[in-house]
Design a binder for these strands. Structure first.
Length: 313
DNA sequence: CGAATTTGACCCGCGC
DNA sequence: GCGCGGGTCAAATTCG
């Protein structure tokens, strides 16, 4: 696993106080020895069992952390491979002459789509070309972001749970994709003008592509409930049952569901790691660095890990 | 029975 | 101007 070179493992996880405490214990004991003037070996016998117990606990905790780190690294590699895969696919689409009318839209959105994961706020990186082309949307000033969600291959529904409530108002089979496209409006419409389109990827039908237009002008209605419920495709952080949603501060984040389904172990996921030479390695490195240095991402990761620790304890 | 979903019809922009 | 295709509407249907 090469993630050690990618992930800055020096995250400021707030788990060190316990370690400090552990180091402080012997010193306290030792100081007591001198202050009480007691023979040192007696207390040593008493404290040995405590220390052994502490050692066991620390070892167990260390093991847990190592496991969690491996999971995080695994998820990271999966995310990376997915990212490379999509970048490669989008790159092919970009040069494809078949998309005529919506060509500019798709090619323009490629960048925002791909780079949307960089700063954790894809909407801020989204562009407004769409509104330039469509005068109707100028009043809305819709910001567009795209979200890829991996689902079970057998799951044919077009439901992407993102913490908001949506009302489906249409479904259409488009020309360039045999899978139907579902149209949703925010349930708070018309006060909330946000729309989203959900369609399965042509290349990988286990992947849902959700396109969001606009910004919610209200908080998430049921993010907690849906994020923690086992049903549907709520936003999760890999296989870690992460209850700390990454979207708490930025409600319409790009979310990549890396649910460890069997479908994620398909041929595309089991490909050799270095088989996406079309993607500039530097770009991927930049994105990974952006993720690992993003305070929001780190905070979410810390929350997830600490939550997991508390849960296990 | 009200809310949500489905689905065929319609609208509108774009290319030829 | 016409046809195509994406997006939206709204009546019908389903669901809780």
């Amino acid at each position: 696993m090469d993630c050690s070179s990618w992930i800055n493992t020096s995250l400021d996880l707030s788990i060190n106080p316990r370690r400090v405490h552990e180091e402080a214990v012997p010193k306290v004991v030792e100081s007591k020895l001198f202050s009480l003037g007691m023979p040192k070996f007696n207390v040593e016998e008493e404290s040995t069992s405590d220390l052994e117990e502490e050692l066991k606990r620390v070892s167990a905790e260390n093991k847990k952390l190592a496991e969690m780190l491996s999971v995080v690294c695994e998820n990271y590699n999966t995310l990376r491979s997915h990212l490379m895969e999509y970048m490669r696919k989008n790159g092919e689409k970009e040069v494809s002459p078949t998309s005529k009318k919506r060509k500019s839209e798709s090619s323009n959105n490629n960048n925002s789509n791909l780079m949307g994961t960089n700063n954790g706020n894809p909407e801020s990186s989204s562009t407004d070309e769409e509104s330039c082309k469509k005068p109707r949307e100028e009043t809305v000033k819709a910001k567009i972001s795209r979200v890829y969600v991996r689902t079970e291959s057998s799951d044919t529904s077009l439901i992407v749970k993102d913490g908001y409530q949506w009302r489906k108002y249409g479904q259409k089979v488009t020309r360039d994709n045999p899978y139907p496209r579902a149209y949703f409006k925010c349930s708070f419409a018309p006060s909330c003008p946000v729309k989203k389109k959900v369609q399965r990827s042509v290349d990988d039908h286990s992947v849902l592509l959700a396109t969001y237009e606009g910004e919610h002008n209200h908080p998430q209605a049921s993010s907690q409930m849906e994020a923690t419920s086992g049903s549907g495709r709520s936003v999760t952080l890999g296989s870690v049952p992460c209850s700390a949603s990454l979207s708490t501060s930025t409600p319409t984040l790009v979310t990549l569901d890396l649910t460890k389904s069997k479908g994620s172990n398909d041929s595309k996921s089991t490909k050799p790691k270095g088989d996406s030479p079309k993607v500039p390695q530097v770009l991927v490195e930049q994105m990974a660095t952006s993720l690992t240095t993003d305070p929001n991402f780190r905070a979410a990761l810390v929350a997830a890990i600490s939550g997991r620790l508390l849960h296990n304890n």
